[in-house]
Design a protein around this nucleic acid. Structure first.
Lengths: 248, 248
DNA sequence: AATTTACCTTGACCCAGATCAAACCGGAAA
DNA sequence: TTTCCGGTTTGATCTGGGTCAAGGTAAATT
């Protein structure tokens, strides 16, 4: 397959799969027209790097399909994943010229990009993009803080169970099923990527997955396809104090 | 001292110490007048809880003076601090009815509160509060992600050095001095609070502080007053890959 | 069919940081 | 001035997860 084959797709915003969840969710037709004028699509193959931390970044973007990761690396090579970007998630920061993290496509990836300057102008002159972006950023901040609890205080087993729960949950919403009873999905991450996300080594990830399988919390077909016979059981293993979110 | 002694202060916004950094930073005089109408001050003593996670929260607020913490607690008591709120930082989330975290005053604390409903209306009808809040939230998200790297990948010694560096830095900016060469400050946190922030036990915090002192990286007078003879040395110990932020 | 390559698993051993326990320190209360 | 008492230090020991090392498996390449 040719190296630089970014086959350019072009959707109408009207039938875009992330129209109602992305940064454009609140836009009226007028705003949408303006966005449509400055948008363009980019595709990346699984494994490709989208941007390196510190690189100049002249666009912001929404993930349309596929999964990307945000990682930080220390000089000595220690890596920590700080974000998992799913369809509708936003990449980049208005008002900032360079990327703060490495962005990598874990699966084949399509992004809807906006040149930075016109996007910033749009934010300045219309309200809905900025409002939606604030909402999304607050959600991400909550997710980051939940992850801080995981990284700081959970055991390896709890970490794995939590990650599987998150992936299972988003997979269920994608298929429009409630995350109850049995459900199954493909892991979009290698053991090493999971380790980078969870603050573990890949060996520990592997061992804990084996342990959860041995204990019947999960079942595996091959190395990547996971079945959860009992979602509540998995949540117990994750030790998630997720009562919050019910109260009102 | 009487239990409920919240001596009500009243500033003019004009000479408010956080006027140029808080959520109101970008407001024009018209917006400021509207904010002034719905604001009120609240004081808390060191150690008091501002709100419990899950409680109904009918206001949002800015920290004016003092320090507060945001913590998450698991059913079995494991605690992780997920935010340190310094003067000008914002508390609460527009559009959410209940608190997501425990908020506690670590020092005596004064907050500038806004009733939630009118504040949300203001955000809807004027642009600058929302714009500033987005900016602040993006900064907090960056800070949270930096903390994820610390929690997931740094050693105990590096964690302590990082925390001291952060406190030293904000203390220096407060005193308007560049964080270079020797500087000293009081720790606003107990060993246990530091442990909760760093994902460690209080014993490990104590041991690592002793070790940094033994190695001459820091000096202590009493248990709380810290002197940093060489800030760059401390930053080396923190293993901070903080080149980012220079590039433009 | 054989070889390479990228992932993944499992075992043996080790160590940073947790746990358990005791003592210390300095300010406030009695 | 002694007694508390919350915060802190330090020691002894334990252990979860890291490190090092050896295979295993399956898809891709030769």
């Amino acid at each position: 397959m040719p190296m630089q084959d970014m086959h350019i797709v072009h959707h109408e915003c009207g039938d875009c799969p992330i129209r109602h969840r992305a940064v454009c969710a609140r836009c009226d037709s007028d705003e949408l027209t303006r966005l449509e004028q400055i948008k363009y699509y980019r595709s990346y193959q699984a494994g490709q790097t989208v941007i390196w931390s510190g690189d100049r970044m002249d666009f912001v973007a929404s993930v349309v399909t596929g999964i990307a990761t945000l990682t930080q690396t220390m000089e000595d090579g220690r890596r920590q994943m700080v974000g998992l970007l799913l369809p509708s998630d936003f990449v980049g920061r208005p008002g900032r010229a360079t990327a703060a993290y490495d962005v990598t496509a874990t699966t084949d990836l399509v992004m809807c990009c906006f040149r930075k300057k016109p996007f910033e102008d749009l934010m300045q002159t219309t309200p809905h993009v900025g409002q939606r972006l604030l909402e999304m950023t607050l959600d991400e901040l909550d997710a980051a803080r939940e992850w801080m609890l995981l990284l700081g205080r959970k055991t390896a087993r709890e970490k794995i169970a939590s990650l599987l729960g998150i992936i299972a949950r988003r997979d269920a919403t994608l298929k429009l099923k409630a995350p109850k009873g049995a459900l199954s999905f493909d892991l979009p991450l290698t053991r090493e990527e999971m380790a980078d996300y969870l603050g573990l080594t890949l060996e520990t990830v592997s061992r804990q997955i084996s342990a959860l399988k041995r204990d019947g919390v999960i079942a595996l077909e091959g190395k990547r396809h996971v079945t959860i016979p009992d979602f509540d059981r998995l949540m117990e293993e994750a030790a998630d104090d997720s009562d919050g979110g019910f109260l009102d």
